[in-house]
Amino acid sequence: MCRSSVCISINWLEEDLRLVSTGRRPHLELMQRMNMNKNKIWGDLVFRGLTAAFASGIALIFIAIILVLWQQSQPSITKFGFSFLTSMSWNPVQEHFGALIPIVGTLLSTFLALVFAIPLSLGIALFLAELAPHWLRAPFGTAIELLAAIPSIVYGMWGLFVLGPLMADYVQPFLKKTLGFLPFFSGPSMGIGMLTAGLVLTLMIIPFISSVTRDVFLMVPQPLKEAAYGLGCTTWEVVRDIMIPYGRKGIAGAIFLGMGRALGETMAVTFVIGNAYHLSWSLFSPGNSIASTLANEFTEADGTIYLSSLIELGLVLFLITLIILSLAQIWLRRSQTGRT
C-alpha cells in the first residue's frame, strides 16, 4: 500500500514536469484526470479569477488616477495653457501659477543625486561583488539594503539637523574658496538648498542602485572573468573591460530605479530644499520641487485655480515619472533580449 502510493506520486511528478515543459496547466489537468472533487477545481478557477481581478484593479487605478488628475486640473489647464510649464511665477495672491521652478527643482535635485550616487554605487557594488572578502559581503550588503528601509522623514530630519549645518559651516565655505569663481558655488552659505537636497537624495538612492548593480555584477559569467585574468588583466581592467560592459544595461536599469525614487521623493526634500520659488545658478540657493510644493501647499490651498494648479503639478510629476520609468522598462527589456 505504502509503496504503491509512493510510486504513484512519482508518476504524478513526472507527468507534472512534462506538462510544465509543454506549457499547459498541469494541476488543473491532473486534477481532472484524477477525477478529484469538483469543488476543488472550482476553487482553483475562483482563485484564478480573483488574482486576475486584483491585477486588472491595478491597471484600473492607474487609469483612474490619470483621469482624475486630468479632470481636476482642467481649470488651471484652461486658464494657463502651455504657459503653466514655462512660467516662473507662483503667486497665490494674484492667482497666477507656473510650474517651471518646481519642475527645474525636481529635475536638478534628481540630477545632482544621480551625479553623486552613480559612481558611489558602482564602487560599492564592485567592492561587494568582486573585491570584498567573502565573510564581509553578506553583512555589508545587508547594511546597505537596510539604508533603503529608513523612512524618508528620518533622512529629512538628518539633512536638516546634521547635514545642513555641516554644509553651512564647512562644505560651502570650502567650495566658495576653491571653486567660487563658478556661478554654481556662490551666494550665502545657508546649508539649506539645492545641493543639500541633492546630497540627501544621493544617500537615499544609493541602496537601490548599489544592490541592483551588485546583482548585475554577480551575473557576469565566471569564465569570462577568469579568461581575462588568465590573459594577465589587472582587477581594474577586468572591471572596466569585462564587468561594466557586460552589465551595462542592467546598471542602466538600476540607475533608472534610483532616478524614479529621487523624482518623487517628498518629505526628505521638503526638509532641506528651502521651499522657495527662486531660480538661481547657485546650487547653494534654495529652490523647490514638485513633490515638496504639493506637500507644503495642498492643505491650505483655497480657491479653485490654486488647488487645480497644484493638481496639475501632480499630473506633471506623474507624467515625468511615467516617461522616465517607461524608458527604463524599454531599456531593461532590450537588455534582457540582448543577452539571450
Binding site: 511665477s89 507662483w90 503667486n91 497665490p92 495672491v93 494674484q94 545657508m190 539649506i192 521638503t270 528651502g274 521651499n275 522657495a276 520659488y277 527662486h278 534654495p286 523647490n288 506637500a295 507644503n296 501647499e297 491650505e300 483655497d302
Partner: peptide, 13 residues
C-alpha cells in the same frame, strides 16, 4: 494672503 510670492528667502513648513 495665507501664502504669497516671497521676493527672497527660505520656506519652512
Amino acid at each position: 494672503d495665507k501664502a504669497v510670492e516671497w521676493p527672497v528667502g527660505l520656506g519652512g513648513k
